[in-house]
Structure formats: C-alpha cells, structure tokens
Write a protein that binds this DNA or RNA. Structure first.
Lengths: 153, 153
DNA sequence: TGTTTAGCCTATCGATTTTGTAGTCTAATT
DNA sequence: AATTAGACTACAAAATCGATAGGCTAAACA
C-alpha cells in the first residue's frame, strides 16, 4: 500500500496539471482544495521540488507550479520520490540497487527471480503513465459515466 | 518493499517445498538452516497454518509441512497472508476492497485507474507463480550459471 | 528601506507498525 | 507420567508514518 504522503503528492500534482498554464499556485490553496494538512503538504512539495518535478516562486504572487509539462512527468517518478524504489526487494531495484542482507546467493534466489518480474511490470505501467495520461483517463471515465447515465435514465 | 516477515515466510516455504515428501520439519531446524529468529518464525508459520498453507504436528516427531503440494501454493497467497492485499490502494483490492477515506469520487479518481492496472499486473504474476515454479526457476538459473562457467573457463 | 508575503528548513511528537523476545499452555508421543 | 514440540499471549525496542511548531530567507512592493 502506498502512503498517504504519496497519495497527497499525486492529488496535488494532478491539481497542478489542471492549472498548468495559470502560473504559481499557493500551498494554502492546494491544501484547502485537496483537503491536505498544509504543513504536511509543504514537506511533500519541497521533496518534489528537490526531485525536479516542481518549481517554486517565493514572496507575493509566488507558489508552486510543475517544472515540466504534465506529459513529461510520470507516476513512476513521483512514487519513487516519495515512496522510494518500486522494487519489492532492493536487489531488483534499477534506481537504487542494494543487496538483501539475508541472501547469501543472490543469483539462485527464487524470491528475487519472481520479484524482478513484478518490478518490471510495475515500472512498465508507472513510468509510462504521465500526469497528462491520468487527466485524460479521468475525462474518459467521466464521459463513460455520463454516457451510461444517458442510456439508463 | 516487502517486509522481513514475508521474506522469512517465502524462504521457509521454499525450504519446505524441497523437503515436501520427507515428513514434518522442526521449526528449530528451519530457523537454523534459513537463519531466521526461531520465535519469530513460530508466529509466521502459525499465520501460514491458519491461512491453510501449512499443516503442523505436535509432540515428538512433529513439525511443519506444506498443507498442499508446492504446485498448488502461489506466491500471491503467501504475500497476501503476511503482507496484506497486493493492491497499492485499498479501493482496487479484489481480496479486501475498502474505500479510500480521502477520495470523494472514486469513479473519476485518476490514481485509482492507474493503480488498478498495477494491481492486476502484480496479481497476474504472483498468483500464477507457484512454489514449484520458483524451485524450477532456481534450477534453471543454476544451470545457466554452470553453462556460462563451462564456456568461459 | 522596511514591511509583508510565502516558501525553506529543522526539530519534535504521538501513533502505529515492525521485528523480535519471554513465558506459559496444550496436545501428542513414548 | 515424562518429554517433546507446537499454540497462544503479552510485551518491548526500534523504525516509520502522519502531522505540527516555529524560526529563517528570499522576493515583491509600497
């Protein structure tokens, strides 16, 4: 399960994607609109900024905005930033490989072999899903729902 | 990342798969062979027994053994038992659906749409990987390694 | 220039989860 | 009845998570 922190991050980024061309958004506004504790959101946005996902402007008229267009920011990048590596075990992580302490023979570890498949499948999905894709899928779903409504009334 | 608990469980089950036809194995032996804290392993094996994965025998000559052949026990089952649902968010779990508190409109939640794909991909891999499959893949890897060794010497 | 605005940064805190340990109880075997 | 070995409960240290507090710094603007 992903943490609340990561969910907050994704919600904030989807919001910022919608407002992409409208200049910086205040943390306070984001927090209120998405019902995220303001001080907690501050930390999250800061982490995303340090990861190159967001940019910020200080002082009056300041706030946060995406550092790149929604099409160029992937769910994978966001989740890795806040949750750490996608891999279920460190020995199959591409972005942050580490040995498993308890493993003496990594090359014949059955857990590793299966978890590598899991990691690859997750990475394939999450690295190819951009914020723009997410917005599009939301719209598609809304239209599906409206269509269904039209026919069932 | 999966917990140590789950890794211990998988290591123990792979061990028990190898010894499947040799009668019950002592917790103490399992703990020593796989270097798992004995008392901790007790809890893990008990949970797996309650989930129907293992069976136990008390008293002298007792111990633990698989409740079903290795071919019929999936990684998915084991991980769900010790780690909980595979789904990254509760609202896409098949085995333990729950609403996300912070979500007001589940049907147009973009996070949910992508996470559903992730869950399905993970479930596809983990539910179709049996302990027998894992043993086979370990053997395959060992042979690959030996083959490579043969040619590079 | 100095005041206000708004993000930056560090510390801290309570609750929960993780990883384990201890000790007693119960069932089965000899 | 004595021994063996799993079953069950309780507990505790350490790590992680979710959240808050408060001062600092940079930018805008009057």
């Amino acid at each position: 399960m992903i943490s609340k922190k990561t969910k907050y991050a994704l919600k904030a980024l989807i919001y910022l994607s919608r407002e992409f061309d409208k200049g910086p958004i205040l943390i306070a506004d984001l927090a209120r609109e998405e019902r995220i504790p303001k001080k907690f959101l501050e930390l999250i946005l800061l982490a995303l900024k340090n990861a190159g996902v967001l940019q910020s402007k200080k002082g009056k008229g300041g706030g946060y905005s995406l550092a790149r267009p929604p099409r160029e920011i992937s769910m994978g990048k966001v989740i890795r930033t806040l949750e750490g590596p996608l891999a279920p075990v460190p020995c199959v992580s591409e972005s942050a490989y580490a040995r498993c302490e308890e493993c003496d023979d990594e090359w014949s570890c059955g857990i590793r072999l299966v978890m590598k498949d899991v990691r690859d499948a997750m990475a394939q999905i999450l690295d190819s899903a951009s914020l723009a894709d997410v917005l599009e899928r939301i719209e598609q779903e809304k239209q599906k729902k409206d269509g269904a409504l039209f026919y069932t009334i």
